[in-house]
Design a protein around this nucleic acid. Sequence first.
RNA 1: GUCCCGGUCGUCUAGUCCGGCCCAGGACCCCAGAUUUUCAUUCUGGUAACACGGGUUCGAAUCCCGUCCGGGAUACCA
Length: 517
Amino acid sequence: MIHPTPRLRFAPSPTGPLHLGGARTAMYNWAAARAMGGTFLLRIEDTDQARSTDASLQVILTGLRWLGIDWDEGPAFEGCGGGDYGPYFQMQRLPRYRAAADRLLAGGHAYPCYCTPEEIDVGRKELEAQKAGFYGYNGRCRNLTAEQRAAFERAGRRPNLRFRMPVARVLQVHDLVRGEVEVNTKELDDWVMLRPDGVPLYNFACVVDDIGMQITHVVRGEEHFLNGVKQHLLFEAFGAERPAFAHIPLILNKDGKKLSKRDADTNMLDYRDKGYPPEAVFNYIALLGWSFSGDRDLFTRQEMVEVFRIEGIGKSGAKFDEEKLRWMCGEYVRRWTPAECLERARPWLATVPAEAFTQHRAWLQNVIACYQERIALLGEFQDRIGWLLADPVADEAAQKNLAKDPASRQWLAAYADLLAAGNLPPSYPADRAGADEAVPLPSKKDAPEPVCAFDTPSRIEAATRAFTEQLGVKFGSFVHPVRAALTGTDKGPGLFDVVFLLGKDACVRRLRAAAAG
RNA sequence: GUCCCGGUCGUCUAGUCCGGCCCAGGACCCCAGAUUUUCAUUCUGGUAACACGGGUUCGAAUCCCGUCCGGGAUACCA
């Protein structure tokens, strides 16, 4: 037994941001570990020194935490990390690879290769010319004599270490997602394990660490399937028990192609910055290749952990659908309480004065509440609520509504007078004296109270309806120019929520301005 | 080229292992209607799929074969 409890890892290379595919792989590993009561760890595969950066590492760790994925072992970050199997950075484990390589060398499973990249290229071209159907390394150094090796050494060549692959051996590989797959080793060449400078390559470092960290299940993208076969042999050469493997299909872009790291839209932190709710992104990504059940799309991380099984992951690739993600974001935003929503949206509300969050919190909460069902991303509040903070410029639709009926000028002026005389709460930033605590918005219009006062939206509505009757104007035609005058547009919350929120001074000022044309 | 995997509504999928409950269910999108002071939300209804061709079987989305299409792999990247 590798370990009495399951141990799964996500092993990103810090050569780019965390993208959707990586996030999903991490999530599946995480969910499987949590579902089985095991351990989830993060191992940083930073052996590509040319491309690895600390910035990428930070982006990856930040992205994972943002999604709500935590790790028991790995780099220390926001309360995650630590563990007894470290270090968790491969560049800090170099001596282990050297020692492991020496064991393989001694056992005849590996050999030094003195070929230069150019020579390898030539060999590959020859195979190609022969139409061999396979273009890997030709095995030139596979059976070098001691003298030949010495000659290369004298010539100053420093060898790579290659793994000696069995010739034409048929392997049965079991995969938790794909089932039983047969692979012939003639499809694989003698691959490089260790560079002359002692820095290992992916397959080698991966297996040494999976053994060292007692990994029990390997869940990763299907681009690693053939690597899995190479690794299969390596575990065997080390005399180590093999973990269970699961190779999951890739996430495809709109064109059905592999989602690329270079695609800016796939950077996890871009989603964060645009105000996508992380639990929605988590929920959505989980569904790309896995399903909670036949008839349910919305679930929490905890609920996923309760039912997740690696075997439940699908075999076919999934295209990323921005529209469904967006819908899901809206679902989450609508579920929050206004207070929670305001707190979450705060980073995107740069134009809202800081004191509003303390002095006029109830008012702000009502503002947010009125837009919760109208937006999907937190970043969308800002533009929508601009009319509340400064007198708006009427857009095209508003101008049209203002110009529709020439008589509307008089209604607007009269309505301004009506509001001016009533007890409508004052406009922000004046203190609204608890009006907003008393009246949660958006208000229901089921029960308009027949009282002609202006301290709640329903009373404003009642008063306004009475007013239009008196004026002899159809309620419907009255409402549109008023909305246009007040908000500068033709969309938004119920008109009397608008009036209530805007308050007396601003309402009167805007109505009179519109009346004056 | 060669090897591996896949192919159910436009998209994500349930069903496929253990053929009949599936003239295929859910969700997004789209369309229509209801509610309504706009937008949105909500509710109701609708359009829409088993890639194709052969088998096996009383019966196939489900099993077998072939074709086509898609994806992945084939590095001194991971």
